[in-house]
């Protein structure tokens, strides 16, 4: 159990981290976003509910660290057609909450987000509950895990090729 003071310090650091992540995503700063990950990072966007077993069932994204890197490399080619031109994006993040600590000391945190995407197809709104596990590495917060529970992940979705 953290003291009230250290809890306030932690939530302030975590909030700053989540805002920064959101900005890097909105502005397609792919390499800076990738640098937020720990070496064992897992980036997961489930389909057909929030509680599926990603080892048995299809997810929209279920990237280990090397596939995160591949995803970023593809975007950096400039020939990822679905992001050429890039979507224009802005997202609001709120409801940031520290959750019970993880074994091993990772910081467990959740937030809600709503993303407005403007692409060649049309304007699209995405809404999600985001679950993170964050960790201090060399004094800096890093993401070890990000799970994005899209509100409409049971439905047929348009292409989701920006960083959610």
């Amino acid at each position: 159990m953290l003291s009230r003071e250290s809890s306030a310090t932690l939530i302030s650091a975590v909030t700053a981290f989540i805002y920064k992540e959101a900005r890097l995503q909105d502005e397609h700063q792919y390499e800076a976003w990738e640098a937020l990950w720990t070496d064992d990072g897992v980036y997961w966007v489930p389909a057909n509910g929030d509680d599926i077993d990603p080892e048995k069932e299809m997810s929209i994204i279920y990237d280990n660290r090397s596939r995160i890197s591949l995803r970023i490399k593809q975007l950096l080619t400039g020939k990822r057609h679905t992001q050429t031109p890039q979507s224009r994006l802005r997202r609001l993040v709120s409801n940031i909450e520290l959750l019970d600590g993880q074994p091993g000391g990772d910081i467990s945190v959740a937030s809600n987000s709503m993303v407005f995407e403007s692409s060649l197809r049309d304007d699209t709104i995405w809404a999600a509950r985001n679950e993170y596990r964050l960790r201090y590495v060399d004094g800096e917060l890093r993401m070890a895990y990000k799970k994005v529970n899209l509100v409409n992940n049971e439905k047929a979705l348009f292409t989701l090729s920006f960083l959610i």
Partner: peptide, 10 residues
């Protein structure tokens, strides 16, 4: 048995 992704296109 692995469940379907549903990808919509205009």
């Amino acid at each position: 048995t692995a469940g379907f992704l549903k990808h919509r296109v205009k």
